[in-house]
Design a protein around this nucleic acid. Structure first.
Lengths: 185, 185
DNA sequence: TTTATATAGTATCGCATCTAAACTAACTTG
DNA sequence: CAAGTTAGTTTAGATGCGATACTATATAAA
C-alpha cells in the first residue's frame, strides 16, 4: 500500500529535505573545523542572535536541546577558543556568550562554503517567514525572530529604534538580529 | 564589533531557523516515541523515498551520515519493529528497506504533531525548491528530488510515466516520491 | 578467464553527545 | 523570610558517530 500525497504535503517534503541538507552541510563543515555538528550550530546561533539571547538558556531553546547538553558543548568550544563568556550585570546567575575572533572566522568559513547564492530573491523570505511563524505558533514554541518585525520594536521619531520590553535603544544592526523574546505582530 | 547583515543573508537566517525548528520538533517526537532523533529522520525519509532509494546507502546520502552509522541505526529500528528488509532481486549485496505498519503509524503521529497548517499555499513550494536545487547544485551533492520534476521522467502517450534510467513504468503515486538519482531538468 | 577496482553493507572500537537527575546559586513572589 | 522559579553545572549511563577493517557481490579492464 502506497501513500496518497496531498498538496500540502509537498511543502513538507521540501522543507524536510532542506533541513536534512542543511544539517548535512553543517556536519561537513564541522568535520573540516575539527568540531562537532552541535558546536557549529551554537556558533551559528551566536552569530545572529542579539544581546538578550546569547545565553545558555537561549541556545537551549533555539536548538531544542537540554541545558545540560548545551552546557557541556559550551565548555568545549570555550576551551577551543571559539567563544568567551562575560558575566551579566543584571543577573549574577547568568552570563552572556560572545564569539571570539576565532569563532567568527570559523562561522565565516562555514557560511561561505554552504550558502546558496540566491540572486533573484523575490518574496522567498516572506514565504519562509510565513511557514516559520505558523509552525512555531502551532507548536507553542519560543518564537525566535528578528527585532525589526517584532511586536515590541518601536520606531523612534528622532531616528533609531527601541525595544518595548527592555526600553533600551536599538541600532540598525541590532534589529537585524534574532531574539528569544520575539513576538509576532 | 557587530556584523553587517546583507539582504541575502536574511534568507539564510530564516532557513537556519527553519532547520533548527524542524530538528527540534523531530527530537521532541523522538522522545515521545522512545527512539532517537536519527531514527525518526530515517523513518521519515523512508516514508517519502521511492523504490530506488530505500537502501542504507540512500539514507546515508540523504542524511549526510556515514554508512556505518546508518547501519547501526537500522539494526535498532528493525529490532524495535519499525522497518523490515527485503533482499534486492537485482543486487545480492543490497536490500530494500520498508516501513512496517508500526513504522508508518509512528511517522503519521510525528507528522500530525509537527506539521504547520499552510492553507494559502501560493508558490511557497516553488520558492523552496529553487533554494534547494541551487544549494545542492553548488555543493555537488546528490540531488534528491521528486520524479515528477526529474529530467529522466517521461510522460507516456498512453498515460502514466516512465523512468528513463531504469525504463520502468511509474505510477501517479511513484512520481510524487523522491529519488536518489534525481536530475534537475 | 583473470585481475583489479568499485560498491553495498556489517562489526568493532573509542570518543563525544545526549538526557535525566541531583545540585548550587541567585532572583522573584507572596 | 519562606517558597518557588530560573540560570547554569555536574555526574552517570545510554547511545550516536566516524574511522577502520572486513565480507561479499558487481563491474570493468586485461
Amino acid at each position: 500500500m502506497r501513500y496518497y500525497i496531498k498538496m500540502n504535503d509537498d511543502i513538507i517534503i521540501w522543507l524536510e529535505r532542506l533541513s536534512a541538507l542543511h544539517k548535512s552541510q553543517i556536519r561537513k563543515s564541522a568535520a573540516i573545523e575539527g568540531v562537532q555538528l552541535v558546536h557549529l550550530e551554537i556558533l551559528q546561533y551566536l552569530s545572529i542572535c542579539n544581546k538578550y539571547s546569547n545565553t545558555a538558556q537561549g541556545i537551549s531553546e533555539y536548538l531544542g536541546q537540554t541545558k545540560s547538553s548545551i552546557s557541556q558543548s559550551l565548555k568545549f568550544i570555550e576551551k577551543v577558543g571559539h567563544i568567551k563568556r562575560e558575566p551579566n550585570s543584571n543577573d549574577k546567575r547568568s552570563y552572556q556568550i560572545f564569539l571570539t575572533k576565532d569563532g567568527k572566522e570559523c562561522i565565516k568559513r562555514m557560511n561561505e562554503s554552504s550558502t546558496p547564492d540566491l540572486s533573484e530573491v523575490g518574496d522567498i523570505v516572506g514565504n519562509i517567514k510565513t511557514i516559520l511563524y505558523k509552525w512555531q505558533e502551532q507548536n507553542d514554541l519560543k518564537g525566535f525572530g528578528q527585532c525589526k518585525s517584532c511586536y515590541f520594536n518601536k520606531i523612534l521619531e528622532k531616528g533609531g529604534f527601541q525595544c518595548g520590553l527592555t526600553q533600551e535603544p536599538l541600532s540598525e544592526t541590532d534589529i537585524q538580529q534574532i531574539c528569544r523574546e520575539y513576538k509576532f505582530k
